[in-house]
Amino acid sequence: MKTVFEKTKGLTDKTFHYCPGCTHGIVHRLVAESLVELNVLDKAIGVAPVGCSVFAYEYFNCDMQQASHGRAPAVATGIKRVLPDSIVFTYQGDGDLASIGSAEIMHAAARGENITVIYVNNAIFGMTGGQMAPTTLIGQVTTTSPNGRDPLTDGYPINMSEMLAQLIGSTYIERVSITNVKNVKHAKKAIKKAFENQINNKGFSMIEILSTCPTNWGMTPLDSLKWLDEKMQSVFPLGVFKEVK
């Protein structure tokens, strides 16, 4: 029989702990496939965040460090300074990167750290049970915005990609989604390019992947994809925000 698809060697055999319908699994696969296809898995060092993907170190089949909440870009900086030839990536959610870790990501980009940041934005704190995040949409109901996010008290969503693109130090910033096959294929291309940039010493790359959280959004997986396409994308438009050729 002809093999048409195989699990990538870039992932371990450990079963994901993610909820049904969560898109972390797809993103994990795309990152792992990219490392394998670029032939850098054996010199990759990943940094896992705090949040839903805290156990990422059990899934990526390479050396890993687990960082404190939001500090993955600082940890990655430490790693890259010691081992400039290694391939260093952080895998962070929006609570980790856009909330508590906003300073670390900003300065890693400003320094032009030659690292790859995988930023999974699902507009909510997932691991802790669905609290409001800096990325939560106006009107979105979470456990800490029970009547919907109100800009008068809760402010507005943060667009990290647009912000980081403003920094001279950043090289490549793109926002992608994984709601259909076409989008997944494109996301893979972007992630791969972000790693290629690092291999070619081009500096700081971040791919923001819009992602779903059916459990905490209180929707079916299919409705979640639809909500992402319709609602999230209107606040977080897809596209390349920075690319230094």
Binding site: I45, V75, A76, T77, G78, R81, V82
Partner: peptide, 22 residues
């Protein structure tokens, strides 16, 4: 190599990353 961190928090986490590489 000397690296100036953006805060003491970042500095100690850079130490973590670097120490983790031996």
């Amino acid at each position: 190599r000397y690296t100036q961190a953006e805060s003491e928090i970042a500095a100690i986490n850079m130490v973590y990353g670097a120490a983790g590489c031996g």
